[in-house]
């Protein structure tokens, strides 16, 4: 029989060797639920925000106005309920409620994704509404002035700008979700926290196991944060642009690097000079 480790680092190595696959499965499920849930929540939030920002004019027909108002009211209720109760409680109510009332037999993971999506949707709806409100009114007017309707204005002009502006907040939601999926252990979702608890129980080494667990959480959140920063940079587009040839130098191209003030001149003109 193998001898058990005697110090902290010994135990850390021991649990990593012993429970590596368990940690990996847990981390995979955590990431799966957090990323899917945040993405779905983002879409829910987008739809909710678009409906909640439909402009109602006195010229809109009364029935349409009534319908939109009613939808907006329901969405407000949704946001208030899911922002106003803890996700751990929502998990219990939805998981056991869906089985008891509707006879659904959801797998724990699917239930987890559902709960995180609906919960995130409520937060994202408000974040996206804020993003839409933050875009200058002139952008909407200019879009309308070239004949765009509400949907086209949103899709081509407002949302691309609003989504770029709310990316940092969306990143926050993802990071929060990676950490908060841990509450799903109450409905036996095999995410990282649940797996860690099982691992810790066998040898009663809670400190060492959860030390490893926190390192894994940190790696997950840190990686995700960096990736989102890269995405932000990419969406901003290049800082430089190219001035195309003029009449005097038809093939001339001047690359203007915004910020550093450098000019790089290329093409016929630059070549011969």
């Amino acid at each position: 029989m193998a001898t058990l480790p005697e110090n902290f680092w010994g135990w850390v190595l021991f649990v990593i060797r012993q429970y590596g696959p368990l940690f990996l499965t847990g981390a995979r499920n955590t990431l799966l639920i957090a990323i899917t849930g945040t993405a779905a929540g983002f879409l829910i939030g987008l739809l909710v925000a678009i409906v909640r920002t439909i402009p109602l004019k006195p010229s809109t027909p009364l029935t349409v106005r009534g319908l939109v108002r009613f939808a907006q009211f329901l969405l407000t209720v949704y946001i208030e309920v899911f922002r106003g109760t803890p996700m751990i409680v929502q998990a219990m109510v939805l998981y056991y409620g869906s089985s008891q009332l509707l006879g659904w037999d959801l797998s724990a993971i699917l239930a987890g994704i559902l709960i995180v999506s609906i919960n995130t949707g409520a937060y994202m709806a408000e974040i996206i509404r804020g993003g839409i409100d933050s875009i200058d009114r002139g952008q909407t007017e200019a879009a309308q002035a070239i004949g765009m309707n509400h949907i086209k204005t949103m899709v081509y002009v407002i949302l691309p700008q609003a989504i770029r502006n709310i990316l940092p907040a969306t990143g926050n939601e993802l990071v929060v979700n990676i950490k908060d999926t841990s509450v799903l252990n109450v409905i036996s979702v095999t995410e990282l926290f649940f797996m860690s608890k099982s691992a810790a129980g066998t040898y009663m080494r809670y400190f060492e196991v959860f030390f490893v667990t926190s390192v894994i959480y940190l790696i997950l959140t840190f990686t995700v944060t960096r990736l989102l920063r890269l995405l932000e940079k990419k969406l901003d587009g290049p800082d430089n642009y190219t001035i195309m040839g003029s009449q005097t130098t038809p093939d001339g191209m001047i690359h203007v690097h915004h910020g550093d003030g450098n000019l790089a001149i290329r093409g016929k003109w630059g070549g011969q000079a």
Partner: peptide, 9 residues
């Protein structure tokens, strides 16, 4: 427009 309102994106 007075404020140009070019689409910033």
């Amino acid at each position: 427009f007075q404020q140009f309102n070019l689409f910033n994106n």
